[in-house]
């Protein structure tokens, strides 16, 4: 039975963590299970991997794509006189991102928009978090795509783009009618066996990524906005201990 009435998937830490150190470090067998737990598919002949964490991996380009990190969300709420949420979501998200980078050894990182909850949140990053992020960026080709929350340049290095074309694919924050497109923005989620999970939505023309950030809710995949975007044969790839593929729920 799901918790009453709330949206969103299970807590992020219980979802697929790969590698990393500490008490949760995986032994070899578990690591093998992680590899098989990914979902491989192609879009416009590009071989892609949906990872249980919610990140998208394109091995041929050594590219890791994450969307909707929403760094600094608690800071933004506090600044606006709202509630004082635990100010740890940035480091929680960074921790998972670091694990993904280690697991995939990706040399390029693409943050698909809404990386920061707003531009002031980017400036207001806690110093330790900021240094950690800079360490992750060092030696990697880092691309920030603008989102609706963080339109405009960031004072953090890396390249800033409204969108990116990397043939045969194009990347932007919000989906358009264009084919072979990778986007984020909607935070899709889907319910399986009574539990809600963040999910990828994948069809022959596009991929919509789940939100990677810690403090992010979600929009049901069956929402008309998503149903309109996706083709009838679309699948939802659910995040969790491992990826699970189901037909996209259509309400």
């Amino acid at each position: 039975m799901p918790p009453p009435g709330r949206c969103c998937g299970p807590p992020v830490w219980s979802e697929g963590r790969t590698g990393g150190s500490g008490p949760e470090a995986l032994d070899g067998r578990a690591r093998l299970r992680q590899i098989t737990a990914m979902h491989r598919f192609t879009l416009a002949d590009a071989a892609l991997i949906a990872r249980p964490s919610g990140a998208l991996h394109w091995p041929a380009e050594s590219l890791l794509v994450v969307s909707d990190l929403h760094f600094g969300k608690s800071e933004r709420l506090a600044r606006r006189g709202g509630t004082l949420l635990p100010p740890y979501e940035t480091r929680a998200t960074l921790e998972r991102l670091a694990a993904e980078l280690e697991a995939t050894a990706a040399r390029r990182v693409l943050c698909l928009g809404d990386s920061f909850d707003d531009l002031a949140a980017a400036e207001g990053l806690d110093e330790a978090d900021r240094l950690w992020l800079l360490r992750l960026m060092a030696g990697r080709d880092w691309l920030w795509i603008e989102g609706n929350h963080d339109a405009g340049p960031l004072d953090l290095g890396g390249s800033h783009l409204a969108e990116l074309r990397l043939p045969p694919l194009s990347f932007r924050h919000i989906a358009t009618a264009e084919a072979s497109e990778i986007s984020g923005h909607y935070h899709p989620k889907a319910t399986l066996a009574g539990r809600s999970h963040r999910c990828f939505l994948i069809d022959g023309a596009r991929v919509i990524l789940p939100a990677f950030g810690a403090y992010t809710g979600g929009l049901a995949a069956s929402d008309p906005a998503l149903v309109r975007l996706m083709q009838p044969d679309a699948r939802a790839v659910l995040c969790g201990a491992h990826c699970r593929v189901i037909p996209m729920p259509r309400g």
Binding site: P3, P11, G82, P86, Y215, T216, G217, L219
Partner: peptide, 30 residues
């Protein structure tokens, strides 16, 4: 710490609300 969800807010902020479970896990960890 968490605002009650009001009908109006839920309507407009569809991605804004996230589960209190996430806050609980964050606090426990950090």
């Amino acid at each position: 710490l968490i605002e009650r969800s009001h009908q109006g807010r839920r309507k407009s902020g569809r991605q804004a609300t996230f589960s209190s479970d996430i806050l609980y896990d964050t606090l426990r960890r950090y």
